[in-house]
């Protein structure tokens, strides 16, 4: 260690190189000023970033809104195309018929009288007995045997036929 003792003593003299008196307090004051300046600078920067962000949002919002609306329309269209109309129309058809059927004329089947024997044909030709036969047919509305065979459309046939059908059985037909 003594080999470099003299040179170390020389170097150690550099401790006497000192800044001017009061440097520390002056330095601390400058440090505080710098901190305040940095805070102001940071606030300005933050304010600028906020404004830039707002401007960017305002610039992009209408475009994004339109884009989102277009996407929504496309999605709705695709969904409607992917689902057949029949599936969607079923509830509408079942819900609608009752009032429409009420306005239709009752279906009166045409009877082929050629197959009947002459005595029955003579009975049929009597006008006073025809309403009675119709009443018999229509008095049992739920029975399949009482309905005409040609009525295969499922449409109600008794809308104005009789008051009984109109009052008592319309609910069943509507179902």
């Amino acid at each position: 260690m003594s080999e470099f003792e003299d040179i170390q003593r020389l170097i150690r003299l550099k401790r006497y190189e000192q800044p001017e008196e009061g440097f520390t307090e002056k330095f601390l004051e400058q440090f505080h000023q710098r901190q305040r300046a940095e805070m102001l600078q940071k606030s300005s920067l933050a304010l600028f970033m906020e404004r830039a962000g707002t401007w960017w949002e305002n610039l992009l919002m209408p475009k994004w809104g339109m884009a989102m609306a277009a996407v929504a329309v496309c999605a709705a269209s695709a969904w409607m195309l992917s689902h057949p109309a029949g599936n969607a129309a079923v509830p509408a058809v079942t819900a609608a018929p009752a009032p429409a059927a009420a306005s239709e004329k009752p279906f009166v089947p045409k009877m082929d009288l050629s197959d009947l024997p002459p005595e029955r044909l003579a009975e049929k030709s009597k006008p006073q007995q025809q309403p009675l036969q119709q009443d018999k047919l229509m008095k049992v509305p739920g029975s399949p045997s009482s309905l005409p065979a040609s009525n295969d459309q499922g449409a109600p046939t008794t809308g104005k036929a009789t008051p009984a059908v109109q009052s008592g059985e319309q609910g069943k037909l509507g179902q």
Partner: peptide, 21 residues
């Protein structure tokens, strides 16, 4: 750009030792 040397260096034992030896 050097700072001033404090006048206390003249009384420093290292300085005295170096200068006298």
């Amino acid at each position: 750009s050097l700072d001033d040397v404090d006048t206390g260096i003249e009384n420093d034992p290292d300085f005295i030792r170096v200068t006298t030896s």
